[in-house]
Design a protein around this nucleic acid. Structure first.
Ligand SMILES: NC(=O)c1ccc[n+]([C@@H]2O[C@H](COP(=O)([O-])OP(=O)(O)OC[C@H]3O[C@@H](n4cnc5c(N)ncnc54)[C@H](O)[C@@H]3O)[C@@H](O)[C@H]2O)c1
Ligand SMILES: NC(=O)c1ccc[n+]([C@@H]2O[C@H](COP(=O)([O-])OP(=O)(O)OC[C@H]3O[C@@H](n4cnc5c(N)ncnc54)[C@H](O)[C@@H]3O)[C@@H](O)[C@H]2O)c1
Lengths: 182, 182
DNA sequence: TAGTGCTTGTGAACACAATCACAAAGTCAT
DNA sequence: ATGACTTTGTGATTGTGTTCACAAGCACTA
């Protein structure tokens, strides 16, 4: 909306957009503060800024990728992370054939260099290695000071409580579809 | 557990495994029927069968892939869909250079062949095309009789109410991490 | 068969989230 | 300045899902 030159938006416009009720929008916003102006609506620029602040998306963050295989290569090629201020600034693999290859200005490093992440201010990582290796990689990432992990392997990985792990299992997501198919 | 030769399991074992309370497990199961035996627990084989039935995962299903680019190639190479009885039996692209290429015994077809899916008993599809093309592809899939769509493009796609769409936006999932990082 | 030890299944109590209805606060035209 | 019109913010209400506590049921032993 900001890009379209609009300056303010009402709760019912927002509600239509995400298919919920206007009062749900207003109630949710009100838990965090008074963002709107009565009779007018919400200032788009300011609203976006406030939401980014609440979700801690108001700073750019460096992210590492571990495992540059089929999925890892796709992720390295993906440009959509910039939307939220993320940069993939490091990639690691244990396959000598892949180490040194460059994609999107990032060179693939040897997995043994993982412990340099702390010094490089990288605090998030994406795991895209075979599931047998996932736990070992997670342990190494935690030792390197990473605070958040996006895990694509279909395996529960165990980390200290302070570390947040989000697991995406594409097969499980696909498995949600049949329930809705007659 | 079945593979490990175990025959029955208690609600508290299951609860530990997925990090919830035992009574939550029992309550949820009880909404669908009496699966367990008091004093013993749940028969693993039967429990798995019942859950598969509830989630409609008790039949094998054919799935089509549209868009054999970076992400699409990774998905075609992925073997994890078999767990839930899914088979990727068709793949489509509009790039002549990709049409005809074979991966995992599936040949990439011209996107114009999409309307043959109905006759081939394919009722689910995965969209992995650029976001500008996502809506057009979705429309074509619906016309071809597909009932469920897994959408990887970061775009809201509009379909008839009868059709179920699940959208996975990897960047948005990654964007959930900073909130938990101090 | 009676007793002991487990584990399930579930009504009741509770906590939380969604919904409603409306006062408060702004805009705009006259 | 006033009145008509919008739109927000929120206490009160309703609805839904989670948690609790315990009776009911089964296995095993003697
Ligand atoms: N491909 C998909 O569409 C898909 C979908 C869902 C989940 N996954 C999961 O994502 C993960 C990766 O899938 P993929 O298809 O890219 O596999 P892949 O085999 O193509 O890639 C794995 C990469 O990890 C590297 N690797 C292996 N062990 C390593 C280690 N100890 N340290 C560093 N690097 C190591 C390999 O050299 C390889 O480059 C798997 O766990 C898979 O189950 C993949
Ligand atoms: N690569 C990632 O890691 C990643 C992550 C999240 C989301 N996505 C999304 O997934 C989608 C695909 O990403 P990608 O990186 O594989 O892109 P890509 O450009 O590598 O692949 C897109 C493929 O779709 C084909 N295509 C284009 N228009 C088509 C049409 N009308 N009909 C049929 N095929 C068509 C192209 O020929 C190409 O092979 C994009 O929407 C992207 O935003 C990708």
């Amino acid at each position: 909306m900001s890009r379209q030159g609009l300056s303010s938006v009402s709760s019912s416009k927002l509600a239509d957009f995400v298919s919920v009720n206007p009062w749900q929008i207003r109630k949710d916003f009100s838990y965090f503060g008074d963002f709107g102006t009565r009779g007018v609506g919400y200032d788009i620029e300011n609203l976006a800024k406030q939401i980014k602040k609440i979700l801690k998306l108001d700073t750019t963050r460096k992210t590492a990728l571990v495992g540059v295989g089929n999925l890892g290569s796709a992720i390295m090629a993906y440009t959509g992370f910039g939307t939220y201020g993320f940069q993939i600034t490091a990639a690691f693999d244990n396959d000598p054939a892949k180490i040194g290859r460059k994609m999107n200005d990032v060179a693939v490093e040897n997995i043994s260099m993982l412990d340099t992440l702390g010094k490089r201010q990288v605090d998030m990582a994406i795991i895209a290695v075979p599931e047998q290796a996932a736990q070992d990689v997670a342990d190494a990432l935690v030792r390197a000071g990473v605070k958040g992990i996006l895990n694509f392997s279909p395996r529960r990985i165990v980390v200290p409580k302070k570390i947040k792990v989000i697991t995406i299992d594409i097969a499980t997501d696909l498995a949600r579809l049949p329930y809705y198919i007659p």
